[in-house]
């Protein structure tokens, strides 16, 4: 039986091996997970410090997005240790005292040829932050950043796929012209 269909079986075995590798192994092997340098808790800052999203992730007057806050923002409250935990002490010793910026890993780094305006999407299109970023604001720990091994770009494929942008623009009747995003 095996000898009779040996060729077909080997062909199918090769196909199955490739399909398994392609669908199971490749999506995992394509990325490396890089832990954030500081285990920041959005939940604690929102609950205990009463911080709002806009306190740290601001839009400047000219509409540009300030992105991840710099150390100055952290130091305004953490000039001295807030509590006695080891994590807090490590944070103060590593970053606040030597005044060293935290090398945050970006979850969504756009390719260089892409222009994305948070102001347009938040203020004009009234998109909720969660629509793209998920419930980050309620998380207690920061997930590791996924970095593509070949291109070194960070973030999920969902964000960097132009089809996602185009589909959303099409659904909402927004322009899909090249210069809208590639300037």
């Amino acid at each position: 039986m095996f000898e009779e269909h040996r060729g077909k079986i080997l062909f199918l075995a090769g196909m199955l091996a490739a399909l398994t590798a392609g669908w199971r192994v490749f999506p995992v092997a394509r990325y490396q997970n890089v832990a954030q340098p500081v285990n920041f808790s959005h939940k604690i800052h929102a609950d205990k410090a009463g911080a709002k999203c806009e306190d740290c992730h601001t839009l400047r007057d000219d509409g540009t997005f300030a992105g991840v806050p710099t150390l100055d923002k952290c130091s305004s409250c953490h000039a001295q240790p807030m509590g006695t935990s080891a994590r807090e002490k490590q944070f103060i010793d590593h970053y606040v005292t030597p005044n060293r910026e935290i090398p945050w890993q970006l979850y969504v780094r756009q390719p260089q040829n892409v222009y994305f305006s948070h102001a347009f999407h938040v203020k004009l299109a009234h998109l909720d932050c969660r629509q793209c970023h998920g419930p980050q604001g309620e998380s207690d720990t920061l997930p590791a950043a996924r970095i593509e091994r070949i291109s070194s770009y960070s973030g999920s494929p969902h964000f960097q796929d132009m089809d996602v942008c185009e589909n959303c623009h099409r659904q909402r009747g927004a322009t899909n012209s090249c210069l809208g995003c590639h300037k």
């Binding site: 490739a18 399909l19 590798a21």
Partner: peptide, 9 residues
């Protein structure tokens, strides 16, 4: 077979 399978991944 592996080549054909790879194209479908």
């Amino acid at each position: 077979g592996a080549t054909v399978g790879l194209v479908l991944t």
